[in-house]
Design a protein around this nucleic acid. Sequence first.
DNA 1: ATCCATATTGACTATTCAGTCGATTTGAGC
DNA 2: GCTCAAATCGACTGAATAGTCAATATGGAT
Lengths: 185, 185
Amino acid sequence: MSKRELLMKTARRLFAENGFYGTPTALVAKEAGVSNGILFHYFPTKEILVSSLYQDIKDRIFNYAMTQIYNGATLKESIYTLWLASVEWNLEHPEDFEFMLQFENSPYYNEDVERSQRYVQMNLELIEQGIDQAVFKHFNPLFVVRILTSLVETTVKHLNKNQNLIDDFEYKSRLFEMAWDAIKK
Amino acid sequence: MSKRELLMKTARRLFAENGFYGTPTALVAKEAGVSNGILFHYFPTKEILVSSLYQDIKDRIFNYAMTQIYNGATLKESIYTLWLASVEWNLEHPEDFEFMLQFENSPYYNEDVERSQRYVQMNLELIEQGIDQAVFKHFNPLFVVRILTSLVETTVKHLNKNQNLIDDFEYKSRLFEMAWDAIKK
DNA sequence: ATCCATATTGACTATTCAGTCGATTTGAGC
DNA sequence: GCTCAAATCGACTGAATAGTCAATATGGAT
């Protein structure tokens, strides 16, 4: 693994554990087993390190979701696939999930960053379809995406606290019905 | 206003603007027009200041919600009343809202803090009723409260960005239907 | 008037931390 | 085996910043 990757991996872990305000850059470098200087060589400021990490995580979620979608699916099936992909991915990457939540509720985060996510864009397209076809309640599409996203987050937190339910696909599909009922007409 | 109140009021504003990690205690004291020392007299650590502020905000939301509920309401009406009270209160106190979001996604926050909120307890009682009466989907009541809470938050963010809708009660009741549809059987 | 706990001040400190920099190493291309 | 840019090191710095403390003020109770 390159030192750059090593740094990101270490930062992800430490940021999840102590928050990025609670994690000195020097500690990231130390735990990654590299020098302080090389951190700033790859990430000129701490903010750039934090943002890069976030972008990276979101890209990986998107890539995973892409492997799950399939042609010929109904709208509901597509939304379910994305919803489930996101839930599963976050369950399997608790460090990324913790970090993501902190980042999205920090002053770093804004609508430009949000819209630039390919995962958000993919959802937006589906939601717009659903609204056009009057399958969904008539609201601003980005708002509906946010509703779904917040329900994914609440769901993941819930499953993380109830590990016994984590492999129960029937339960997860009941959880999805909550989200679906919220947005459907 | 007492110096203690002055400090809390100032902290609320600054924390909302720059986050509590981005706000030095010295600045809070300075902007409040009091000495540095008196801040630590009332709040021995910054963490205590932050937590006190959070508790205070939650108490005020609860008190406001209490003024809105009324006897003889149906379950749906009661849930709506609480939902709307929370939305309205957050809309009218954007600084508190910003701060609250940051706090709830910071390492300070945990389930003990959450459960201790009287506002959460009040919601819990209603939700438990609804589940017992099979009006709601059968899930862990605290989870259902969290679903409602996260939908309140998403709703408030949405209305804050669309000021033209902020006084549209018919629109707000449509927004509530999303939350209701999510949890109802 | 005196007492005393509490309120209040603001200068001070000890530490922490993001970011710098000059020196050294590496390795790919010629 | 020379050259040069990129990688890597780690000691260092300058600016913050949470929290301390000794001194003084205030005001209510006796």
